[in-house]
Every structure is written in structure tokens, then in C-alpha cells.
Amino acid sequence: MQSLLTPINNFLHCTTPDSWIDAARKPENLAVLLTDHLVCELKAAQSAMYLIRRYVVDEQSSTALLQWLKPYEDYTYRQQGDWTKLADIKLKKSMLPKADSNYGQELVDKMVLLIKEELHHFYQVLEMMQHYGITYDKITSSRYARGMLRHVSTYEPNALIDKLICGAYIEARSCERFAKIAPFLDKPLADFYISLLRSEARHFEDYLQLATKIAGTDISERIHFFGVVEADLILSIDDEFRFHSGSPV
């Protein structure tokens, strides 16, 4: 596991504060931890889907992507549908990039695979909630992703590059927190979080590789900038506990 965590910890500008771990390990916070984690898995899939739809595929492919995610969104945001049927939903169309995109195929390949994994993990989190007798109910989202995305450039291709860098930090932080909290959880949930770490450890590198390729130049300063922003969100005081929240009040 350490071989997976070393590049993640080297990439992040800070570690999760002990105060967050203390809050996350409390039994009374388990429902919030899993519920917010569930929504985070969907948002990760949505973010990857947005990149494909916005930048590299045609309208027909875009529609197929929306249909793929709709049952998950219906369940999460409108509390409609049977979650046990979500595992049977598949993408029914091959995603083909626009011919004029020199990075389109790589973005499609990496993001479609990421979406599949995130949606599978979404279903697995629901299974964990079922195991612990937690009924899904909507909660407010944390300030974390918004806090980074507000710094995204307003013009292309810088906007796309910034979004990919933000995606890298979000994925890396998720994996760091899986490892941080796992030792304090009971075995089924601890084993699950370690399995997620193994599955998602490469995601941040996929985002960074795409950002570097699209930029075609050194983006280390921009990566550093968002690293500082991300660390400030993690270390500063946060008035509500969430999977990606900062230091609890």
C-alpha cells in the first residue's frame, strides 16, 4: 500500500489533519461520511463525463453519456429508482472523438474507464450503507471542489488544463483519506476503503498526464498553484463535516 501512497503524498501539499480523522472515526458521523462519499463518486463520474462531452465528442455520443448517468442522478438528486438495478446499467455506445482533436482519443479512453470505475464504486458505497443500515438521504455538498474550481481560467485551453489539474488533486485527496481513515474503521469498511485506494490510486496521474499533453508546455507552476489552494481548503477550519471537508470546528 505504501508504494501506492508515496506518489500521492508527494503530490499533495499537506496531509489530512488529525482533527478530521477524529471526526471521521466517530460512529455518529458514519452516515454523513458514507453519504457524502457516495455523492463524491457520482460527482467524479459527472466531472469526467463533462470533459468528454464538452471537449471531444459529437452530440450523439454526448446524449449517450447523459443517458448512462441519468439513473444514478435520478437516485441521488431526485431519490427516484431502485439502487439495486444500477449495477446492470452499461454505456450502450462507443465514444468516438472528433477527428480534429489531437488528444481526444486519450481523453475518451481515460475518462470512460474512470466513469465506469466511479459508478461501480458508487454502487459499492450503497452496498456498504445497506450493510450498516444507513438510509440514503440528500445532504449539502462541501466547499472543497467549489473552492478549487473558482480559480479555473475563463479561456481555453487553460480552462481545460485547470479542470484536469483540479481533478488530479480531488482524486489524490480521496485516496489519501481512504488510507488515513481505514485503520480506525471496522473490517468490512476498512477493507473496502483499501480496495478503493488500490483501484483509484492512478487516477490523479491520468489527469496530470492529460493536462501536460494538452498544454504542450511546462505547467508545474499551475499545478503548484492549485496544490496551495487545495491544501488551504484541507487545513482551514470547516463548519461542517464531509468526506473532503477541512479541519472541523
Results as ranks from 00 to 15, higher is better:
D162S: 04
T212Y: 01
A168N: 04
R173F: 09
H151C: 00
A145Y: 08
T140K: 13
R202H: 12
R150H: 03
F178H: 14
G216P: 11
R198Y: 03
R177N: 13
A179M: 09
F192C: 09
A172Y: 03
K213C: 01
H203A: 07
I139E: 09
T140D: 12
F204T: 10
L210G: 04
I139T: 13
K163A: 01
A145N: 03
R146L: 00
I161R: 04
S142L: 00
Q209P: 00
A168V: 05
Y144V: 02
A215Q: 06
R202E: 15
S153I: 02
N158H: 12
V152A: 11
E176H: 14
S142K: 01
A168Y: 04
I165R: 04
G147M: 07
E176W: 04
R143C: 01
L160D: 00
R143G: 00
M148F: 09
G216H: 05
S174I: 07
I139C: 04
Y207F: 15
Y155H: 14
E200V: 09
A145W: 05
D218R: 10
I161P: 02
E200I: 07
G147D: 10
E156P: 00
A179N: 14
G167D: 07
A179G: 03
L189G: 07
L210W: 07
Y144P: 03
E156W: 03
Y155P: 00
Y155Q: 13
L185R: 13
A201I: 00
Y144C: 01
G216M: 06
R177P: 14
I161Y: 02
A211V: 05
I214Q: 06
A168D: 02
L149I: 04
D218I: 07
A145H: 06
I161V: 15
E205D: 11
R150E: 08
R202A: 13
I165S: 06
E171Q: 15
F178D: 03
A201F: 14
S142P: 09
P157A: 12
C166M: 03
A179C: 06
D218T: 10
C175A: 15
R150L: 01
Y144E: 09
E171Y: 02
T212L: 01
H151T: 00
I181D: 09
P157M: 12
Y169S: 07
L189V: 05
A201L: 00
L210A: 08
A168M: 07
E200W: 08
Y169K: 14
Y207T: 00
I139R: 14
F178A: 05
R143N: 13
S199F: 02
S199W: 00
D206G: 06
I165K: 04
D218K: 11
A182S: 15
K213Y: 02
T212Q: 15
F204Y: 15
L197A: 06
I161Q: 05
S142N: 09
N158S: 14
S199A: 15
R173N: 09
A201S: 15
D206F: 12
R198V: 01
A201R: 01
R202F: 10
A215M: 06
